[in-house]
Design a binder for these strands. Structure first.
Lengths: 355, 355
DNA sequence: CTGAAAGCGCTTACAG
DNA sequence: CTGAAAGCGCTTACAG
């Protein structure tokens, strides 16, 4: 029983080797040695730890302290470029503060999200950053009532008792529609999702308010989640265009919708922006490289990642103090490209007339 | 000391409540009760566990058994669509087998990858699925020599003593080049990365062999990782095209290179495939939606995810047996679209002549 | 300035 | 069929 086959060294072995108590070693390791342990001993212990490359066993630490230094980031779909790019920046920021992030995808399914939370409760994570699926407020409240740290991301419940970092979807949409109106588009359609999630809901509300103020019609199509990438979704959109021949511009409420939509527009040989102007939420390489490049209402990825991590770390630090809620609402960034320029239409028309 | 403020219930409390020993409870929980504990007692314990919603504390389990049910997936960049889509499928598969996956990005930096491994050693993960950065074979060997389960993904060292799941990059590239030659392209350029990683290296080797066999010239440009998405990379590619006016087709070795390249082709007003045929590795929405749609050598995402998870689970299961290495090499899938069709060129030329 | 000891919540070899 | 007890590797209140 002298040497274990596991090469890993423990505090106990260090203590024996240096003829000190494990208490002393532990104090040194955790920087609680000041004014308790002599500088001499501290130096000796530190040198030895360095030499043997000692690393504390984190499950023992967790068992003892209840802390894991782990934050869960539960998103809708980690392969969606919006979420994966935020995730990447979060990982970096958290790592630098001694935390690691665990990512997981809910597929927007309540049952899946509940399973995941249950699993992470067993694993005792320190905080939850959650992009809730629909009908999930009860679960969030349950988590909070169990004294867990919960930060909502991307979508939220607009109440005083939640922490959140989200985009100002309502204003971003209004801004987008007003820009299109300013460009001279008259009949602007909104393609969205049938959903109560704040993100989607607020975008639709923003659209409705903007067109109402401008005395324009609400021309909108709301798809179900599961139809977006299916033939059914494409067909519904196709039909919608046929039924509304007067549409001269479209705002897509998500990047997935835009991809489906752009395929349909291509199939129907509709020229952008000549036949129809196009704007979508969320920027991607695809939109920049598209012919013509697509105007987007971009979310500030880096800033979102920074706010959500800093906010969560603050909650973690103040865990046992009275906490103020972290409530951050960021503005979107309209990136104008050719797909929404009415001026392009004028130029084109002039050319055509000349022919 | 009766009730703890932490609501969580422990084995000890269950034992006391039911007037049984913690041994008995533990056996029931771990399904080791058969032929040891009476059916009656088992039923009683199970009912109680169900009632109070008991969940074992995983740090205690880990401390005791050394098992974490956690697998690390270390990729180059989790926001790259190739890696994030594989990651998502892996997450699903692993979850169904009781494992969770922790993702992290190395940015292809050795130092970063070493830090990450060191962190995960503290956390005691059960297995490592690694996309190694350059010059990393020594670190991989160190991990293996410490008795860790290591599975290489995407890139590998072609030796008997490693586990890996990779694409057959050499053959995939040959197949691609041969297809282009078959289409009638004569001067096919290869845009790659300066790297010793097997993925990149094998693709370049495949290209060189294919053009050599066909008695064509090797017309290639290799960029550095850090230049791909920078102005420098674009400029180098632009210059390369100017210096090689005879190029009539291009194979991009990664999807990032293709995106940079497509932007440059657009800037130079080169028409695809009329002026230049284009193929890239890895499929993305972008390539399908591009005008014209881009032909790709796609990797079989779902199959890769399945092989890598099943292989890793097998290694985990056989941990204490003699292990055969898991060595899987999958074939790429050429998805032909307009960007590489020489026939398109003929059609276009005919039309132009008519005008 | 330093140490002995309890205990976090489990698993499992051993005894009966 | 069931249980008492050791021990995984830590942290920390307490004693000196």
């Amino acid at each position: 029983m002298k040497k274990k086959n596991k090469s890993r060294i423990s505090i106990k072995e260090i203590a024996k080797e240096l003829n000190l108590s494990i208490t002393t070693i532990s104090f040194v390791i955790n920087n609680k040695a000041k004014n308790r342990i002599s500088d001499e001993v501290i130096a000796k212990v530190e040198a030895y730890i360095e030499k043997v490359g000692y690393k504390p066993n984190s499950s023992a630490q967790t068992l003892r302290t209840g802390k894991t230094n782990t934050i869960v980031f539960m998103v809708e779909d980690i392969s969606d470029p919006f979420f994966s790019s935020v995730a990447k920046e979060m990982e970096e920021l958290a790592f630098n503060s001694g935390y690691r992030i665990i990512f997981c995808s809910t597929e927007n399914k309540k049952s899946r999200a509940i399973e995941l939370i249950s699993m992470f409760k067993d694993k005792q994570v320190d905080a939850y950053i959650i992009t809730p699926p629909e009908d999930f407020e009860g679960e969030i409240q349950k988590l909070i009532s169990e004294n867990q740290i919960v930060m909502l991301f991307d979508r939220f419940y607009n109440k005083a008792d939640y922490n959140y970092v989200v985009l100002n979807n309502f204003e971003a949409t209004k801004k987008t529609i007003n820009y299109l109106l300013g460009e001279g588009f008259e009949n602007i359609a909104f393609i969205g999702l049938e959903s109560e999630l704040s993100t989607l809901f607020d975008r639709f509300e923003g659209y409705k308010e903007a067109v109402a103020i401008a005395n324009k019609n609400n021309i909108s199509l709301l798809l179900n989640f599961e139809d977006v990438r299916s033939i059914k979704g494409s067909d519904l959109f196709d039909e919608f265009l046929n039924n509304n021949p007067n549409i001269d511009a479209i705002l897509f409420s998500t990047n997935s919708l835009a991809i489906t939509g752009l395929k349909v527009l291509k199939r129907k040989n509709l020229e952008i922006p000549l036949d129809i102007g196009v704007i979508t939420f969320d920027d991607r390489d695809l939109f920049e490289l598209h012919s013509p490049p697509i105007t987007v209402m971009a979310q500030p990825i880096s800033l979102l990642a920074k706010e959500v991590i800093n906010g969560t770390l603050k909650l973690l630090k103040d865990k046992n103090k009275v906490q103020n809620k972290i409530q951050v609402v960021l503005e979107g960034d309209l990136v104008i490209r050719k797909s929404s320029k009415h001026t392009e239409i004028e130029i084109k028309r002039t050319k055509m007339t000349r022919v």
